[in-house]
Amino acid sequence: MVLTDLQPGKRATITNISMMSDILKQRLIDMGVHEGEEVCVKCTMPFGGPVMVEVAGQCICLRRKEAACIGVE
């Protein structure tokens, strides 16, 4: 399953970030979003807007289609 399938407030572990574009992947890795890290969806914006996720105690906002490239379990 991917990050966007996750219910808001539920926690999961990132299992795969290889589906993302290189530049995005690097930015997220730099921010501490990588495989094995615990992730939690905080909220989503309406009309297919971006999602806010918490990873390692910090909040990051990314677009939904990009969040859909992050595999979680």
């Binding site: 574009s21 997220l28 990009e66």
Partner: peptide, 9 residues
């Protein structure tokens, strides 16, 4: 070519 939006809150 590639629009991206990632921002730390």
């Amino acid at each position: 070519e590639h629009s991206m939006f990632v921002i730390e809150l």
